[in-house]
Design a protein around this nucleic acid. Structure first.
Lengths: 404, 404
DNA sequence: GACTGTTATTCTAAGTCGTGAAAGAAGGAG
DNA sequence: CTCCTTCTTTCACGACTTAGAATAACAGTC
């Protein structure tokens, strides 16, 4: 709640700022907190006192000051809270356990069937993996804050006024019917939060990656599918039903190649991995397999001068740059962050070309104001980002009861 | 400032909520304010008391209640504050004076030279018009809050940490060099705020038009140029340097017709008025002039079955729907609001077709969640929206000193 | 080892704020 | 005139932040 009109909400907000800052920085001083959070030293003392009592932060020795009382350092208390994050994909399910310093403590992977799995199979695998991890860490159970899910598709939060939360996953591209997340998983005594996988990855970048401390950014994830997170005013854009950021099916041209969503000319049908490799194959190329190896083979062929490969890469960069340029015009970001394995590959091989073309596609003003960067996390931090969902709950929520 | 950690800021925020609500509603009751602003009745009493003392709202008789004490009505005190708004265009300058009920009290128009004007000419006209209005209303001078400018181009706020505000207008399409707004106008003792004209129009829609009370919306303005305002979380998206929302030069296709911005395939080169009429002319049509009359002639021709005209309109709708659909996917709005004279014309003649195609272009989910609406204000409320800039200042700012 | 200078942190007192409960105000019905 | 009902305000309370005073914790220095 950004609202809240009482003095207690004031404290809640200030606690949130301080805690957020400590988690992001890992280790700080009271003076830094006062400056960063626009609080007086006295308030920082009070809030820090609360957080110490809550067990979320800890005192960490001290630094020498210029001749005076040493500066007390404070940092995250790693075992102060634990978070589960799950990367739910079509291929399988990964569940990870993090402490408050966001060190990964444990991980459990469940492979799906080779072919596409059904919601109930995935749900079972998820349930199973979560239970396994929880069973291995009984001593942490009491400080487990929640479970975040990064899901492959549109995650709508339609919790109306009518009580119970209603979160539904629409994974059209997997051919799933709409699924309530409660159907997917029943976690006893554990808060479950869900978000689209690309959004959780963007969240991870916002907290610990290339979008850290940036108020306006776009985080593009290029893999088989195309995902996007738009950060505006320091927050991820969600829209009415939190499906904002659906970028993969942006129509890049009237007509154009058919996309797996059924429409024509989608961005994904140009720069999605399958589309890229498909074009190469059509041009006579012979990709080994379909993943990272195939893509690097394409790059290698292009570097070796194979004209078909060069053309495919050039086209890919051109379309991507066009779409990114449009996005830059639309959102005027400070950073443009490209990730996903296809993104990584393109950034490694064609970064300058991409950057130049994005700037050219955008108008002069917004086009000159962003920095292009690579995602700091690769694909497997969907789970990390998902684990940040309960963290945000912990931070923005009211103070926990402290056993005095 | 959305931040602010002191108890006084709390009051500032609550005052802002209440005042905003009163201005939007025009007339309300205390109970309504308590409900809408999530405040207790006691707090509403206090805040309303402050606002009454400030002279911004007034008591307005009472409504009968079901057998009990009558409900006191309160409303905006029209003469509590005045605002100037200016619509600065290539054709000329219109300055308007509003009171707190946003009744227009006066208007001053200065035609530019028939050909494009220079910044200094426009600045002079602006200065002149503002002075004329101020001179006509000396008694309102003391309660004049500020002047808002709606400008034709990107308005960048680069007020860094280094003191003085730096607001620069980049009106590339007018062929202007970058202009400091201070160069454009020197207003003694009057706060001057500026924003892009399309954004001020969107602001007007947010306050009093089709986007009222909506947290997620897109407001598209179609005229000779194409403008856009994206409302996310109840606020207009601005991006790093407030140039977010540049939509007219979105590349709709690789290659494509050349746009006045120099690039190819811009949306504006398809659905801008000149482009539409140009295509009709190329197809053998004979538009009378170039404005509204020409466009209605095109629609009439299409209605009469002229195949060239039908084709032109169909193409226009198709491209526009594509672009809007992409935007819907990206922002997941609750409303899609179309305005501008070209927009009006298209909505009158091809609304159903446009709506169907936008929904088809968007994914199923976000595509089914918005309502398509017509702008409630036509072109001349750029000035109204501009006048809302100082209003926002008044609302979000601290309480005014009251001569006790 | 006492003392001083210096810086970081905490304590104290003062001033604000919002809220629930209780009191007050303003009409209508009997 | 009295009671009843319904809004509105007052009051007492607890909670908050903060400026400034006080204290803590060190390094030199005499």
């Amino acid at each position: 709640m950004a609202d809240g009109a009482t003095t207690r909400d004031l404290r809640t907000r200030n606690r949130a700022r301080v805690l957020r800052r400590v988690v992001v920085a890992g280790e700080t001083t009271r003076a830094d907190l006062a400056a960063q959070c626009h609080l007086s030293a006295a308030t920082v003392t009070n809030v820090v006192g609360d957080l110490l009592r809550e067990g979320l932060i800890e005192e960490r020795g001290s630094l020498p000051s210029d001749g005076g009382r040493p500066i007390g350092q404070i940092g995250v208390h790693p075992s102060g809270a634990y978070f589960l994050g799950a990367d739910v994909g079509e291929h399988g399910v990964a569940v990870e356990l993090f402490d408050l310093s966001f060190e990964r403590l444990d991980r459990e992977f469940r492979e799906g069937r080779t072919r596409e799995s059904t919601p109930s199979e995935i749900g079972e695998a998820l349930q199973d993996a979560v239970s396994a991890i929880r069973a291995r860490h009984p001593e942490r159970e009491s400080r487990l804050v929640g479970l975040g899910l990064g899901l492959p598709g549109i995650v709508e939060d339609i919790s109306g006024s009518h009580g119970g939360r209603e979160v539904v996953l629409y994974a059209q591209s997997l051919g799933w019917p709409p699924v309530h997340i409660d159907e997917l998983l029943r976690a006893d005594a554990l808060e479950v939060l869900a978000d689209n996988g690309a959004k959780t990855l963007a969240t991870a970048e916002m907290w610990f990656g290339a979008a850290r401390g940036v108020d306006h950014a776009i985080v593009a994830l290029l893999g088989r599918g195309i995902g996007l997170g738009v950060v505006s005013n320091g927050e991820l854009m969600r829209g009415l039903a939190s499906s904002a950021g659906e970028w993969g099916h942006t129509k890049v041209s009237v007509g154009g190649p058919r996309c797996r969503c059924g429409a024509q000319g989608c961005l994904e049908a140009y720069v999605g991995a399958d589309a890229i490799l498909g074009r190469w194959r059509d041009g006579g190329g012979e990709p080994p397999g379909s993943g990272w190896r195939a893509l690097t083979a394409l790059v290698a062929a292009a570097d070796a001068g194979a004209s078909a490969a060069v053309r495919v890469l050039d086209e890919t960069v051109e379309v991507l740059a066009l779409a990114l340029g449009n996005l830059v015009n639309l959102t005027n970001p400070e950073r443009v962050i490209v990730g996903g394995w296809v993104g990584l590959c393109l950034m490694q091989s064609r970064r300058a070309q991409l950057e130049a073309q994005v700037r050219a596609a955008a108008l002069e003003r917004p086009g000159g104001q962003f920095a292009l960067e690579l995602c700091r996390f690769e694909g497997d931090s969907v789970a990390l980002g998902a684990a940040l969902l309960p963290l945000q709950r912990l931070i923005d929520g009211p103070m926990a009861k402290v056993t005095a």
